[in-house]
């Protein structure tokens, strides 16, 4: 009968989930609208002429009349509200617009590149979570031991290294000196398609570098919270009851520490995406990073708005998932309040 009771309790805890999701969706609409308006206002304040950016070095030979024709074709000289209304109108019809810096529909840019960035971020996040939970917990258990000291020293060292440098160092060691892994690109340069095995081999270094660069925060956080919860009453009680060390560590101490950790993951996601931009550059990966920078430099509103909105959606979703997970893990948190 106990499992049924537990399931019932859990079901009751998540009873309000539907309402929460609906409420969050309602909040998301104004947040997204505000983000996109902010995007356009910032863009309007930018002194950069997108047509000049488009011309590149040809700006030396392109006449003002010629540039004006191009701006007129794009409608970028229209008043801001007109541009914004046009953008929203197209968005509602499912058209994300035309990227002036990439010369292709924004939807195509996202379709071709977002997958690679998500794959990189997702794999790195999974690696960071697994490694930091394991390392942090073990380090907390043997506080002051050699592993604990090594983890902490390593974390501080990594924290002080720029991602860019870490990437170049990884290439120097694993691609050049040892020749184990490719130095960059998504596939072998002469490959005729994107074979999963080939892509996986090319992603080992970037994913690992991104994971390592983001790991210090997580590892140190897990270590400290687990160390703290090891002194909590319920953990001490579990120990006193004679439960085995591993059960106490992972079943009680880590579980207590997991709750604030979930919050950390939710708030740290944007930083992970930021790191991905740099890693994509170092490893010549065709993700969203480089084009976002290019879009910002070229006053490419439609692409900037789309990438910003996509990031906002990801962050909002992550926050929602964090809250739901929180409710599932902590009996004291109720969703239907």
């Amino acid at each position: 009968m106990t499992p049924t009771a537990a399931t019932l309790a859990r079901r009751r805890r998540l009873a309000g989930a539907g309402a929460v999701v609906r409420r969050r969706l309602l909040v998301a609409v104004p947040v997204l609208a505000a983000t996109s308006v902010g995007m356009f206002v910032l863009g309007a304040a930018s002194p950069i002429d997108p047509a000049q950016q488009y011309a590149g070095a040809a700006a030396f030979t392109t006449s003002e009349e010629n540039l004006a024709q191009i701006r007129a074709n794009w409608g970028v000289d229209d008043p801001l509200p007109v541009q914004y209304a046009r953008w929203v109108g197209n968005l509602l019809r499912g058209d994300l617009g035309w990227s002036t810096s990439r010369h292709e529909p924004v939807a195509d840019v996202l379709a071709a590149r977002a997958g690679w960035t998500l794959l990189l971020v997702g794999a790195a996040l999974a690696l960071v979570l697994a490694a930091s939970l394991l390392l942090g917990t073990v380090a907390a258990y043997r506080r002051g031991g050699w592993l604990d000291r090594a983890v902490r020293a390593g974390a501080y060292a990594v924290q002080s290294m720029p991602v860019f440098w870490l990437g170049l160092a990884a290439i120097a060691v694993f691609a050049l000196a040892l020749g184990w892994l490719p130095a960059g690109g998504l596939t072998d340069v002469t490959a005729t398609g994107t074979e999963p095995a080939d892509v996986a081999r090319h992603l080992v270094l970037p994913v690992t570098v991104l994971a390592i660069s983001q790991a210090p925060w997580f590892v140190l956080f897990v270590r400290d919270t687990v160390a703290e919860s090891l002194r909590d009453d319920h953990v001490l009680a579990a120990r006193a009851r004679g439960l085995p060390g591993r059960t106490v560590l992972f079943g009680h101490a880590l579980r207590t520490a997991l709750l604030p950790f979930l919050t950390l993951v939710g708030t740290h996601l944007p930083e992970l995406v930021g790191g991905a931009v740099l890693v994509e550059t170092v490893f010549s990966l065709p993700g969203l990073g480089a084009v976002t920078v290019q879009a910002a430099l070229g006053s490419d509103f439609p692409l900037l708005a789309a990438t910003t909105l996509a990031t906002t959606v990801v962050v909002l979703t992550a926050n929602l998932l964090t809250d739901l997970a929180y409710a599932a893990a902590d009996p004291r948190v109720r969703l239907d309040d």
Binding site: L168, I171, A172, A175, L176, G179, P182, A183, G184, G185, V189, T190, T281, V282, F283, S284, A290
Partner: peptide, 19 residues
Amino acid sequence: VVAFVADDNVRAQRMRAGE
């Protein structure tokens, strides 16, 4: 095949790796 590698140092390293 024309590979696009924006960063100078990365391009040099990949050249050295024989790519």
